[in-house]
Amino acid sequence: MTAFEAILLTIVTASTPLLIAAMGELVAERSGVLNLGVEGMMAMGAACGFAAAVTFDSTIIGIAVGVLAGTAMAGLFALAVLGLAANQVGSGLALTIFGLGLSGLIGAPFVGARRDPVSPLAIPGLTDLPGVGRLMFGQDAFVYFSLALTVAVALFLGRSRSGLTLRAIGENHASAHALGLPVLRTRLLALLFGGACAGLAGVYLSLIYTRFWSPGMTAGRGWIALALVVFAAWRPAYALIGAYLFGTATVLQLHAQAGQIGLPAQLLSAAPYVATILALVLLSLGRGRAIGAPGSLGQPFVPER
């Protein structure tokens, strides 16, 4: 494996959790709900998934429980913002704070436990191909899943009837409701999907990425996933590019150091955030005012009778 291949591999694994979480949030936001609780749902996914994997000594159960934990958190959020039409920004923030705290309580007994590595996929013949072999056919299953997820979400939103419904609801919930579209049910499902993805991204961190659980291990990745959705102008393909750009920036920042480029580390650490802001500005320049934000994003919906 050459150094270049190795760097690409690192970038792919750093980008995968961001992509999975961003894809879930993208669907939720397309339906018109802004969920700022991604970080909290990820933290819960990481803690619950790890706890289950250790308790039952099974990675599969761990993944399932992590996904469930994220979904349950999203359900709580849905209860507040859909059931009671509570403020979305505040509720999302509350979900993050709550999730970080609760995940600490759940994970505490599992500090110090470890899991064996999950072996990456190996396809005989293909994986050993020179050049692209390891990169394309030697990743863990999550990487392939995240790519399949992106394609699936893109097809769902762009080509399917339910996807069209979801987008219509996100654009204008009042007229969608007038047309008889199920606004609240669609949003509930979109939110739960977002929670499942965030939970999965969290499990990826604790079971694959580091293989142990520690408090606060999501370290702001949920917020980055949120930024990616805007960065991507709510399009799955751009979110894929964005996630990989962000992953590249964080990894290359470390390589720039190891490769001895004399810049302050803080400047390099800040680069991805500044780049996101610049990208937001450039996107809006290129496309006029509307940068593709769903029209009803963040607004509570109360059906009129």
């Binding site: 760097i7 520690s214 291990m217 370290a219 990894v251």
Partner: peptide
């Protein structure tokens, strides 16, 4: 203390 970032640094 940032396990994921430490892992990235190690990989780099």
């Amino acid at each position: 203390y940032d396990p994921a970032k430490e892992a990235d640094a190690a990989k780099a």
